[in-house]
Amino acid sequence: MPMEELGCSSGWGEQGKREDRRLAGVCGLANSGNSCYMNAVLQCLFSTVPLVEHLLSSHKRSQRNSPVAGVFVHLFQEVWQGQGGTSFTSPGEMRALVSSLHPQFNNQSQQDAQELLLLLLNALHDDLKNKGERRQTGSSQRLCLGRKSLSSAPAAGDSTVVTRLFEGQLSYQMLCLRCDGHSHSNQVFTILSLPIPLDSYKCSLQDCLSLFFQQSTLTCGDQKLCPECGVKRDTAVLTSMAKPPEILVLHLKRFGCHGSEKRKLRTNVLFSLDSLDLTPFLSRPSANHTSYSLYAVVNHTGDLDMGHYTALCHSTLSSSWHHFDDTTVSEVVDFLVQSPNAYILLYSRQPFHRPTIPQI
């Protein structure tokens, strides 16, 4: 049965009671103790149609036995292929996996949704790579999160569905301010962490992107080694995007320090549902499509210590948006494209089609 036939429907059960079947891919998640950060991230992954199709495709069923991919497959099956009128499920297997991946997540404290998303993508990539789903690529240095916020990522030279969907490449042109010597480097990313203009009540997503890609100067402890001078020098750095990813994940840096005080930026960031254009930030003009459409948002409300995560996701089956607050799911009638709570934005370069995953 194709996935299109698994949408909303209603009927009568054997006991004569009315049974309402939820829309495939739209399912609440139980909170198992401050796990809203995980639930919000998972809802965004449920809405990433190419990832869902890949993991649930018939020729990938062997992934069920993989330590990480298997957990994703089981949960994706329950959300996308589950039967009956159950409006939510408990992601207990995924919670156990998250707890085992890093000590930071092995407790019932609220954690950072962006850090969890990066952890899950890296873990899924490593698992698929080790199971033989790989394709050799170039040997460019592979890092995540972009400038000023870098962490380890999948090892260079291996390609899986994770890297093919989420991986892009940044280009750095560096100029020595003493001898004008030039150098160049590339960094592969899966998430771009964007600064938000300080002391601003309202800004646009383009403002955040422009701030990220603006020319910067590295001085003092951040100086770079100049190949011509042979010593570290003050360096001007121009950042651009050499390769746009298929799925663009943008993390708004709302949490930071103001002196010794930790604070959250509540700036209204205006963002578009479609036509997010990366052309001004490309290393070179591209004939490829570089206009993106929004399909998922992670919101964070409240303060740093007592905050709460929810998600807004677009359904390709109903062409509507839904709000996910743990077990509570509601259709969004009027989607606002500005929010003081937006924390992670997921854009797709290609419009998602209606999934065609066979029923189990």
Rank of each mutant, 00 (worst) to 15 (best):
L238V: 06
M241Q: 09
L282M: 13
Q223N: 09
Q359K: 11
L51Q: 00
L270F: 05
W321D: 05
Q169C: 12
G302Q: 07
C313I: 12
S171E: 10
C229A: 04
L117I: 06
H184K: 08
L124P: 01
L278K: 08
F352D: 06
L177C: 09
A40N: 03
F88A: 07
F72D: 00
L97D: 09
G132L: 10
L312C: 11
L317H: 07
T137F: 07
G84P: 06
L150Y: 08
S210G: 14
V73A: 07
R284P: 05
H308W: 08
Y292A: 09
S193W: 00
I196Y: 05
L119N: 00
D277R: 06
N122M: 09
C36G: 02
S151L: 14
Q83W: 06
S286P: 00
V26D: 02
L294V: 11
S139D: 13
L145M: 13
S47I: 04
P355R: 02
L345D: 01
L225N: 04
N34D: 10
S200R: 15
L128G: 03
L265I: 12
Q108E: 13
C176P: 00
V332Q: 02
R61W: 03
L116N: 04
F166C: 01
A153V: 06
R233G: 02
C179S: 07
L345F: 04
V79H: 01
V79M: 01
S66L: 14
V26A: 01
S320Q: 14
F281K: 07
C144T: 12
T160R: 04
S193A: 15
I357Y: 03
H59M: 09
S318L: 05
L177K: 03
N341S: 15
C36I: 08
L55H: 02
F189T: 05
L205V: 08
E19I: 06
L117M: 15
L194C: 06
R164G: 11
Q173R: 07
L117N: 04
H323G: 12
V333H: 11
N341C: 13
K148L: 15
V73S: 01
Y343M: 06
R354M: 13
V297Q: 07
V337W: 05
S58T: 14
G157E: 08
L23N: 03
P280F: 10
S66P: 01
S62K: 11
F352M: 07
N106K: 15
L205W: 04
V297Y: 04
C220N: 15
T316N: 07
R61I: 11
W12K: 02
V52P: 00
R135K: 14
K131V: 10
H314V: 05
H251F: 13
H184Q: 12
S315W: 00
M174S: 11
F212T: 01
Q110G: 12
G146A: 12
C8G: 02
T190H: 10
Y347A: 03
K232A: 12
V26P: 01
G302H: 10
V332K: 00
G181S: 14
P227C: 08
T86K: 05
Q111I: 10
I360S: 08
F281V: 12
